[in-house]
Design a binder for these strands. Structure first.
Lengths: 366, 366
DNA sequence: CTGTTAGCGCCTTCAT
DNA sequence: ATGAAGGCGCTAACAG
């Protein structure tokens, strides 16, 4: 028996394949790596040997010598959120189609986790990064700068970061919000609650202060709030700080805040929710008060889903192009990796208002 | 100016740090790698140099020499499914807590994608793998065998694979299904539809054939079907093939099949749905027929969610311990990686039936 | 305690 | 067309 050469290991190397095929390493490397010239016969032998040994290239070693990993890093706030799950799927689909693997990390909306995630991705030498960042101001973008400094292209998705001049793939948040609120206004509402405001204790009394507070938290929040105010302005409806939710952004809190708005002397007759959990929270509060939707209060929310369609009443929702958000981001990034010049611009995708039955005239107005 | 030494690159190496600190590479490597002995003063200098240059270890290079990557590979059917998203979060949380990174790949229920995913993970030299496999029989587990052969421990999650003697973390599918159906029976139902059956054209006429068909598709499907039949048996209710959904497992099809069951002369009065999309599909069909739940048809489904709680009526659902499913799988795997002997057993987690209001007596029975 | 040396598996000139 | 040799950044034995 062939006791001389080292017994084939669990993960055979190119050298082992070369030995088995009786050729030099370089020849084996060339055929297995698919580059350079190799005579058909030798190529045949190498392939056979590789097959026999069950050879698989070591991606680590390959990345080390080439300097590229063919891997994209993705940082999202919460992979458990169907929105981000869809975005990630879009990213994975198109990057895989172009021969790239994807490394995804979820930060659960914590900036420190985001920084840690960026470091992990840098350490793993991803070729580029797609990030939905919780960062908003100059002081919190260090980790992204670091990646950029290391020559790792970054494209933002879902959330732009104003202080960073980067490609960003987002939706038309402000417009989408405005259209939704306009629809509510058109139905006759003037007391319209904004669910999912800034996580502060008390709503700032001024619009300026409110916008600042919202923008300080998340880019999308600020935009959606602006859209809400835009619509109010156009209809000359005075802004009432009592009608915006404040506090931690969880379903439970949304329910409490909506309950509060429902208990106001001049209570809300319509609700605009910027997130799915805001919708369920609002619904909970409405039910708890024994009120009905849309009879007593109308509702429009962000993020359409199969559930929204089978609710009673079927919910009017804003549908986001989640998959395309991801695929576009991946495309932009992959183009840069392929040598294209970064355009450093905002790629804005359109949303669609899915009209169902949760909007009606306010009560007492027939 | 220091023109001699190569200018610090975008990603400084240990050698550069060593040079900057005026020590040998090994000393720098030791302090930066956190192993071996280094005098406090030198350590101090190295650290300062690293800080100054912005040194970050190259995880690839490190993995190459150590042979371990401190990375877990995860393969799930669909990251867009909140169930798997929760499982993945459980995995990430505990693996990160134990110093491991996570590489997740979604296969969208396609076995060929699963095989490709396994290869990618093997190529990237993950230390271990957690997989929710679509494989069921001996002939379709080659990729998992390959990983095992290469010394990569694998633990299964959510879906066991009978032909593979591995650790598997799952829920008590059969029992959960049985309890749900028992509840329906206790409410007086005898015509109970099973939504999300095997993807065949026509339901096999015999129970044996049906179970075989279901098991051929997915382990969980077979188990849940068995639980359904168990409950029927216990109550001496004859099995009727007309009451099981067949065809592609998508919401649209579920709606069609439920509509069919609703149109039967002796129509269903209750539905048991094994997946979320089955629930929304069923609801859609019920609404379309102008029927009400639970007045005309009762319903219990798998996978609780915030939506289920605000539906009209609030839905009685089976809650799965998604996060714990993931964290347990990660723990089992990490223990093995830490040297523990694989126990090769089934870790079964309990589900909880969340009782709300979608179950009532069948119509005409008060 | 520190520095030198030899790989890890692959790609890539460079001769042959 | 093919093989030999050097290097990617790091760890790990080995001397000193």
């Amino acid at each position: 028996m062939p006791g001389e050469r080292p017994r084939p290991s669990a993960s055979p190397t190119i050298s082992e394949v070369a030995a088995e095929a009786g050729v030099g390493r370089a020849t084996a490397a060339r055929t297995l790596g698919g580059y350079g010239y190799v005579s058909p016969e030798l190529k045949e032998r190498v392939l056979a040997a590789a097959e026999k040994l069950g050879y698989r290239a070591n991606a680590l070693a390959r990345s080390m010598s080439t300097g590229v990993s063919h891997t994209l890093g993705v940082i999202v706030a919460d992979i458990g959120n169907p929105f981000f799950a869809g975005v990630v799927r879009g990213i994975c689909d198109t990057s895989r189609a172009r021969g790239f693997d994807t490394l995804v990390v979820s930060t659960y909306e914590r900036l420190d986790e985001e920084v840690a995630a960026a470091n992990v991705l840098i350490d793993k030498r991803v070729d580029g990064m797609i990030v939905a960042s919780a960062a908003v101001d100059r002081s919190s973008v260090g980790h992204i700068r670091t990646a950029l400094d290391r020559g790792i292209p970054v494209v933002l998705v879902d959330r732009a970061v104003p202080s960073l001049d980067l490609d960003a793939v987002v939706i038309d948040n402000r417009n989408a919000a405005r259209e939704a609120v306009e629809k509510l206004i058109a139905a006759g509402h003037r007391r319209i609650g904004f669910v999912w405001g800034p996580p502060v204790d008390k709503a700032p009394a001024t619009r300026r202060g409110l916008i600042a507070a919202a923008s300080r938290n998340l880019w999308t929040d600020g935009e959606r709030l602006r859209g809400y105010l835009d619509a109010l302005d156009d209809a000359s409806i005075p802004f009432d700080p009592e009608l915006v939710m404040v506090g931690p952004k969880v379903e439970e809190r949304a329910a409490r805040e909506v309950a509060r708005m429902l208990d106001l002397p001049d209570r809300v007759t319509a609700l605009f929710c910027t997130e799915t959990d805001g919708v369920t929270g609002a619904l909970r509060a409405i039910r708890a008060r024994g009120l009905s939707c849309p009879g007593d209060v109308s509702l429009i929310g962000f993020d359409d889903s199969a559930w929204a369609a089978v609710m009673v009443p079927p919910l009017t929702m804003i549908e986001q192009p989640v998959h395309r958000l991801g695929s576009t981001a991946a495309e932009v990034l992959l183009d840069v990796l392929a040598g294209a010049e970064p355009r450093r611009e905002m790629h804005t995708l359109r949303t669609r208002l899915v009209d169902r039955s949760s909007v009606a005239a306010p009560p007492g107005r027939t």
